[in-house]
Design a protein around this nucleic acid. Sequence first.
DNA 1: TGCCTTTGCGTTTACGTTAACGCAAAAGCG
DNA 2: CGCTTTTGCGTTAACGTAAACGCAAAGGCA
Lengths: 343, 343
Amino acid sequence: MATIKDVARLAGVSIGTVDRIIHNRGRFASGTARRVKQAIQDLDYTPDIRARNLSLSRKCRIAVLMPSGEQDSGYWQLPLGGMKRALAELASSHVSADFFHFDRYNAETYRAAFARMSESEYDGYIVAPLLAAETEKMFEDIYQNKPVVFFDTDIKSAPRYSFIGQNSKDAGRLAAKLTNLMTRGCKKRIVAVTPDAENEHLLYRLDGFTEKAELPVTIFRLPAEGKALKNRLEELKGLIREEVCAVYVTDSSAHVIAELLEREKLSDRVNLLGFDMVPDNVSYLQKGVIDFILTQRPVDQGVLSIQTLYKKVIIGTDSEDEQFLPIDIITLENMKTFADGRF
Amino acid sequence: MATIKDVARLAGVSIGTVDRIIHNRGRFASGTARRVKQAIQDLDYTPDIRARNLSLSRKCRIAVLMPSGEQDSGYWQLPLGGMKRALAELASSHVSADFFHFDRYNAETYRAAFARMSESEYDGYIVAPLLAAETEKMFEDIYQNKPVVFFDTDIKSAPRYSFIGQNSKDAGRLAAKLTNLMTRGCKKRIVAVTPDAENEHLLYRLDGFTEKAELPVTIFRLPAEGKALKNRLEELKGLIREEVCAVYVTDSSAHVIAELLEREKLSDRVNLLGFDMVPDNVSYLQKGVIDFILTQRPVDQGVLSIQTLYKKVIIGTDSEDEQFLPIDIITLENMKTFADGRF
DNA sequence: TGCCTTTGCGTTTACGTTAACGCAAAAGCG
DNA sequence: CGCTTTTGCGTTAACGTAAACGCAAAGGCA
């Protein structure tokens, strides 16, 4: 491997000159530049990253703005775990992160977390921009000179460096295909359960599903918690008992329906399909109450978010504008190959 | 982040002494060692890998011994691609590899490739040890002082550093579950097509399948090529036409059966399930002739093989003895999320 | 011609770690 | 007691790159 010294020798100049020409900094004669560039080509010279970073003593301080881990049945623990793992691996490369959590159903906490984050300056930002309206303007200033990565949800109108996530419509279509398979011969309906709160990518999961489903689909909205939830579940129970052969849940709360099915001894007759390997879902999958879980590798999303900023800030290489992860199908038989938390 | 200088200052010694104590090299007084270790603890000091590697000017030359890319319907291109990608990313960290390919159906070429590989010395080895009997002894000497990674197939009796691959029995079970789903209501049989040649992990894929299949399974052995293959296919055709509702193929050659089904217009009536996203399989999946493809992330296997050696040789951290990858289920609806070659 | 500015480039230090080298003090030995 | 050996530890060069600094030569101007 050629070093900057070899280049300098071949071009007949000093390493300082080579460095200046590489970085287009300071002053140099155009003829010299040509010779140096030729030498770089001839020797196939690439700077040694280790030496570069050592010399720059670059650090990468990252700010992460996301919901607290427990929300959505513990879903956010998954990307969080991925980030922590990636950070541990990159710790000796001077990559570190501060986490700012908010309540995704409370815009005020989002703004507060953002404010706390803004107190220091970071080299890069990772954000789950769940509150579209609030996010639009927030990152405009920051984006001027620091990379901002969105994960989970994309906001096309907001400025960002890269998006890491899922293609939700395809996920819905896939769910429909599996549901069709399971309900072959069944003459009743499918219930699609989706949260009360508006969320763009859950809408896509519904759209894709209804597009491909071969049985009639009844959409059933469910509040997040409390008495309203209880009442609605009671209603749902009646519906399921009578005329339903499968239930599709668009978010990570399939375990709520699973509990209902189990209690009412409906689980043999009614197929259930949901999203995300949160602990409650995993245990109902294991019992056979949930038939399929789809995921979009939330842990990998976390890992990739950190790595994307590391590459940008420390190595200096750019990533794709959109980074989609595969949609995985998980069932009783392959769950344990996913289960060690690495996926 | 604390440096060795800080440690030295706190312990009241020079950096040379600290270094000697860290590496347990040369001579030092036991009292000094205690003080230095305390200081390391107090400051939470970890050596900077970049500086360490720069100083050691460590290189990692890797030898890869595997079948040539075209074999097995182009399967080996997949891990090969993963290795190339990982190598490209690590190029400026002085990781490089030489590839030695063989014909997996010809033991002589395996030995020849091994001999060529043995002409130089490498810092690490990646091997697809498909010929169990030959491999047993081969790596004993090498393993004495260099890490050897097996991928795809494990040989428990041979010495190795780590294995990267799949749990084949689980894959078979999963295949059975999906086949059961697809053939619900069908009263005929399933044909399990498997290559003539002996291969341990294909046996496991059969075992797992027959264990969980709900219909009777007929095992049908297929030669690799030539006239024998043609005759056997003719035979298979008769079998399928009469009394079969699904075909399960244990290796990457599902496309051979797919072609047969398509030609004989049997694809609507007979379900087909196979392994590996090789180009031919992908196109039959797209046409709907193949219903499901299972994979064990061959590309990731390649990436992980390189990374495992990089971590061992350059960073100095050990990996697990066995590294299993998740079993993925791929169908028409989620195939495009896998299709960009990154998975 | 003398002085000042600009241009082009070489020199040097720093980044943090490793490891060779060698010096002083202590210990061993006749 | 004087000599050699051992012990303990400090100093230093090297890894490859970045960037500040400053020197010499050339050019500009009166």
